[in-house]
């Protein structure tokens, strides 16, 4: 199986505190993996570690068996793309200008902009439905449009692996579903491997093939959502009493919190 990310006894820390400790994880290639967990459980930090933005203090991250932290930055960027949680939009940049930056790993210092580069940009714009917006400044777009422009940048990078950090934050329900459908299409039609951090457990269960539940920097559970997600786990990890019922639409697990104060 290609595009398989794995961690071995991974420890990630910022200067003052350890966020992820002793994590053993195998993320299946060719699948959609959702990483869930309560706030500050280390989800985003894990993603930073997987994208090599953060060097591990112990343990390792491997991609198809090769140590990620020994790969050249550019070579890795051709295989693995990342959408940060709160990306910085440069002032007055247009959608197309933004998406073109996604081609950076494919360009050398002296190489001119090629037809292949332009094609990749066109495909990314088309797939995210931002072709009409291409000449608009990104900082004037709505939240949903802006998120799609950023996903387009990641797609233009043309990587088989995509890491998305909370791609649905700040979006309304429809735009959340638009983004998740887009991710599902990328997986189904192009065979992309996706690892994304999500907050909504129901959405995670619906869209992911594989669920990773983190709790206080450690693995609480991992596996197909239908097998992993149960009331006991949610109560233990999120400290929310609940029942888990089958989603009436898809049959995947749906978490219904218990009523807290209804008189």
């Amino acid at each position: 199986m290609r595009n398989q990310l794995a961690t071995r006894r991974l420890r990630l820390r910022y200067s003052d505190r350890t966020v992820v400790d002793g994590l053993d994880l195998a993320l299946p290639g060719g699948a959609i993996t959702a990483v869930v967990g309560p706030n500050a459980c280390g989800k985003s930090t894990l993603l930073r570690g997987l994208a090599r933005l953060l060097d591990p203090t112990a343990g390792s991250v491997t991609l198809d068996g090769a140590d990620l932290h020994r790969m050249p930055a550019r070579a890795l960027a051709k295989r693995l793309g990342l959408l940060p949680q709160q990306p910085v939009t440069p002032e007055a940049i247009t959608v197309e200008g933004l998406v073109r930056l996604g081609r950076h790993p494919h360009q050398r210092l002296l190489s001119p902009w090629s037809a292949a580069d332009q094609q990749a940009v066109e495909r990314a714009l088309h797939r995210t439905g931002t072709t009409e917006l291409r000449d608009q400044p990104v900082d004037r777009l709505s939240g949903g449009q802006r998120q799609r422009a950023w996903i387009a940048l990641t797609l233009a990078q043309d990587t088989e692996l995509l890491l998305l950090d909370e791609p649905t934050t700040f979006l309304d329900l429809r735009h959340q579903l638009d983004v998740l459908d887009l991710v599902a299409d990328l997986h189904r039609e192009l065979g992309r491997t996706v690892v994304m951090v999500l907050h909504d457990l129901g959405q995670a269960a619906r869209y992911a093939d594989h669920l990773v539940v983190l709790h206080q920097g450690r693995l609480a559970a991992a596996g197909p959502p239908g097998e992993v997600l149960d009331a006991e786990l949610v109560e233990r990890v999120f400290e929310v009493p609940c029942q888990v019922v089958p989603d009436p639409e898809t049959g995947t697990p749906l978490v219904i919190p218990r009523a807290r104060r209804i008189s």
Partner: peptide
């Protein structure tokens, strides 16, 4: 002029720039 491309990628913030293979 040659480094201008890198400057543009750097404008995206350290995380995105890192994801695009720039140190």
């Amino acid at each position: 002029l040659l480094l201008d491309r890198r400057a543009a990628v750097l404008d995206l913030g350290d995380e995105s720039a890192g994801g695009l293979g720039l140190r």
